[in-house]
Design a protein around this nucleic acid. Structure first.
Length: 310
DNA sequence: CCATGTTTACGGCTCA
DNA sequence: TGAGCCGTAAACATGG
């Protein structure tokens, strides 16, 4: 039992990898991209655990940003002063958390050489092209302008000139976190109960929050810190209003990494039902994918984006 | 100088 | 048990 004043459960390490956390942060922003400092902020605001040892985990996080191809860097426009680039999710990175684990991906997203180079150029080009019209007011970081514009909910930084229409970031929070784990329990407890004890929401809670608010309000229009309490999710949204009352159950909190085909199917369907335009699945993104040796330098060799299967 | 990136290395852990 | 993912440390570069 956590005592008041003492360490509470919410001070414990959240069951998310840095990749998950970063993806959440990015997805939570209106523009689907954030500067490093805002990624830090997102995490620290919502997960007390990360308010300490900042040197350590921030170094790890930067390592993840650079090392993993699922994250792409988008340079600032001249009218977006500030330090460092924006970070976004690679549009083709696939559903890296399809098994429902946010601690460890079943497979990782790795680009091939030429793809890597290509994305470095055309991605940002596309960005410039795209956002210049849509967000003219954009002075300052995207989250500043976020409050006003009702931009299309899903902007992707397409590397193939917008050809991947309809394709959502598989990393979109509802994909990352968005699953219906019907009837699932965590350690013998209903997930909601576990969530409550943890003091931060588990994946599908976030999903519910996202899904319930995205249609109306831009997610996290402000990056303002919100009070952390069992009643609030990491996005500062009251859980009560967002948590589906009954039938909603959650994955075990540190979700066992088990590829469960049936579940995957279910989640695919539910994702579809929930947002028809977002047909996103790992299979979509890995259509062109060919396996590639997982060497570190493998990122620099071929023509197509690919998903390396483990 | 400090924040931001990039890269290498290594040990722990999990899954096939 | 090996392969691969993850977390961490650390060296190094760069730009404001």
């Amino acid at each position: 039992m956590p005592r008041p004043g003492k360490n509470s459960y919410s001070d414990q390490k959240p069951p998310y990898s840095y990749i998950s956390l970063t993806a959440m942060a990015i997805q939570s922003s209106q523009e689907k991209m954030l500067p490093l400092s805002d990624i830090y902020k997102f995490i620290m605001d919502r997960f007390p655990y990360y308010r300490e040892n900042t040197q350590r985990w921030q170094n790890s996080l930067r390592h993840n940003l650079s090392f993993n191809d699922c994250f792409i860097k988008i340079p600032r426009r001249p009218d977006q002063p500030g330090k460092g680039s924006f970070w976004a999710l690679h549009p083709d990175c696939g559903d890296m958390f399809e098994n429902g684990s946010f601690l460890r991906r079943r497979k990782r997203f790795k680009l091939l050489r030429a793809e890597h180079l290509a994305s470095k150029n055309s991605q940002m080009l596309h960005y410039f092209h795209h956002h210049h019209h849509q967000n003219k007011l954009g002075i300052g970081p995207p989250e500043a302008a976020a409050g006003v514009g009702r931009l299309p909910q899903f902007q992707t930084y397409s590397i193939n000139g917008g050809q991947s229409t309809g394709f959502k970031h598989p990393f979109a929070i509802e994909n990352i976190i968005g699953r219906d784990y019907k009837g699932m329990m965590a350690g013998g407890l209903p997930i909601s109960s576990v969530m409550h004890h943890l003091g931060y929401p588990v994946p599908s809670q976030i999903s519910n929050m996202v899904n319930s608010m995205w249609p109306h309000v831009g997610m996290l229009e402000s990056m303002a810190p919100m009070p952390i309490s069992p009643d609030y999710g990491p996005f500062g949204v009251p859980m009560k209003t967002l948590c589906h009352p009954a039938s909603q159950t959650m994955p075990a909190v540190p979700v066992p990494i088990k590829p469960t085909p049936s579940l995957a199917a279910v989640s695919a369907i539910s994702n579809l039902a929930r947002s028809p335009t977002q047909l996103c699945s790992s299979s979509t993104s890995s259509l062109l994918g060919q396996t590639l040796s997982d060497s570190t330098e493998g990122k620099n060799n071929f023509l197509h984006p690919t998903v390396v299967h483990s």
